[in-house]
C-alpha cells in the first residue's frame, strides 16, 4: 500500500459518489431528448437528492429497525462495490478484500436487505416488490457471475484489477467468448438496474412496478440514500462493463499521469455508454413481468455459452 494507491482509491470513491448522480441525469436527459421532450437538465438528480435530504422522513408505524437500517446498508454496499471496481486505476488497496465473486455477493447483500426491508412494513406492495426483486435477482446473479467467470477464465484470475490489467494488455482481438459475455452482461444490467425492457424507473403503476414497489414506503433522507445507491449501482455496472469489455485508458500501478488521463477517458466512455442506454430504453417497450424470467434465462444461457466458447475456441 502506498501513497499513489491511496490516492487512486480515494479518487475512485469520490468519483463514484459525485459522478453517479450525474450519470443518471445524463441518461435521463438523453432519454428525454430522444423522446422529443425537453428534459429536466443534467443536474436534476442532485437537486432531487438535496430536496429529499431536507424533507422529513415518514416511517410506517409497523417498521422495525431493519427498515431504517436497510438504506444505509444498501448505500454502504454500493459504495464499497464502486471502490473495488477499477474505474480509474487498477492500483486499488481495497481490491484484494473482494474479488469478482465477492462483488456479486455485495450486490446480493444489498438486494436481500432491500427485499427484507420491503417486506418489513407488511403491505401488499412491499412483499410484491420483494418477491419480484428476488425473482430478478436469482436469475441475474448467476448470469453476472458467469460473465465474470468468462473474463476470469481468460485472465486466469478472479481479482477484478488483475482481470482488467490482463485484458487491457492483450492485442486487440475479438474474443467470441467475451462477445457472448458482453451480450449477457447488457441484458443483466438492464434487469439489475431496473431499466426499461424489464422495469421502468419512472413508473408507479401498481401492476408493473418492480423496483419502485420495493422502495414505496421510503421517504426523506432514507429515500435519498436509496436513490443515491441506485445511481451508484448504475455507475458500478457501467464501470464493470467498461472495465471488462473496453479496458483501455484505465491507469495502472505507479502511474500518476495515467491516473489524470484516466478521468477524461472514463467520462468519455460513460457518456457514450449512457447515451446507448437511453437509446435502447427508448427503442424498447417494457415487457410483461411473466416474460422477465425468459429474458434473464437468455442472459444466463448467453453467459454460459460464453464460457463454453472459451473452451471450444481457446483463448
Amino acid at each position: 500500500m502506498n501513497l499513489s494507491g491511496l490516492l487512486s482509491q480515494f479518487l475512485a470513491i469520490m468519483a463514484a459518489l459525485l459522478l453517479a448522480p450525474l450519470l443518471t441525469g445524463w441518461v435521463n436527459q438523453w432519454r428525454a431528448w430522444l423522446q422529443n421532450r425537453s428534459g429536466p437538465g443534467l443536474l436534476q438528480p442532485y437537486r432531487m437528492l438535496r430536496k429529499l435530504f431536507i424533507k422529513e422522513s415518514v416511517v410506517a408505524e409497523s417498521a422495525s429497525p431493519l427498515f431504517r437500517m436497510a438504506p444505509y446498508v444498501a448505500f454502504g454496499c454500493m459504495l464499497l462495490s464502486c471502490a473495488i471496481i477499477p474505474t480509474l486505476s487498477t492500483d486499488l488497496p481495497l481490491s484484494p478484500a473482494a474479488d469478482a465473486i465477492a462483488l456479486v455477493g455485495l450486490f446480493a447483500m444489498a438486494r436481500v436487505f432491500m427485499a427484507l426491508a420491503a417486506m418489513d412494513i407488511g403491505t401488499a406492495f412491499g412483499s410484491l416488490g420483494a418477491r419480484r426483486e428476488m425473482l430478478i435477482g436469482f436469475l441475474a446473479e448467476p448470469a453476472l457471475l458467469s460473465v465474470l467467470f468468462t473474463a476470469s477464465l481468460i485472465s486466469q484470475s478472479t481479482a477484478l484489477t488483475e482481470i482488467v490489467e490482463n485484458l487491457a494488455h492483450r492485442d486487440f482481438v475479438l474474443y467470441p467468448s467475451l462477445a457472448f459475455a458482453g451480450i449477457a452482461f447488457c441484458l443483466v444490467s438492464f434487469a439489475e438496474n431496473a431499466r426499461v425492457p424489464v422495469d421502468n424507473p419512472t413508473t408507479h403503476l401498481e401492476l408493473t412496478m418492480i423496483h419502485e414497489a420495493l422502495i414505496l414506503e421510503y421517504s426523506g433522507r432514507h429515500l435519498a440514500l436509496i436513490e443515491w445507491a441506485i445511481s451508484l449501482k448504475l455507475f458500478a455496472y457501467s464501470c464493470i462493463g467498461l472495465a471488462l469489455f473496453f479496458p483501455w485508458g484505465i491507469a495502472e500501478a505507479q502511474a500518476p499521469v495515467a491516473l489524470i488521463l484516466a478521468i477524461p477517458a472514463m467520462l468519455f466512455k460513460l457518456a457514450i455508454g449512457g447515451f446507448l442506454l437511453a437509446l435502447i430504453e427508448t427503442l424498447c417497450a417494457k415487457m410483461r413481468i411473466f416474460r422477465v424470467p425468459e429474458f434473464l434465462a437468455t442472459a444466463f444461457l448467453m453467459a454460459v455459452i460464453g464460457m463454453l466458447t472459451h473452451f471450444l475456441l481457446g483463448s
Partner: peptide, 17 residues
C-alpha cells in the same frame, strides 16, 4: 489469482454506512 478479505470487506461496508 484470487483473494477475499472478509474483515476489510465488513469494515468497508460499516465505514461507508
Amino acid at each position: 489469482r484470487a483473494s477475499y478479505g472478509p474483515v476489510f470487506f465488513l469494515l468497508g461496508i460499516i465505514a461507508a454506512s
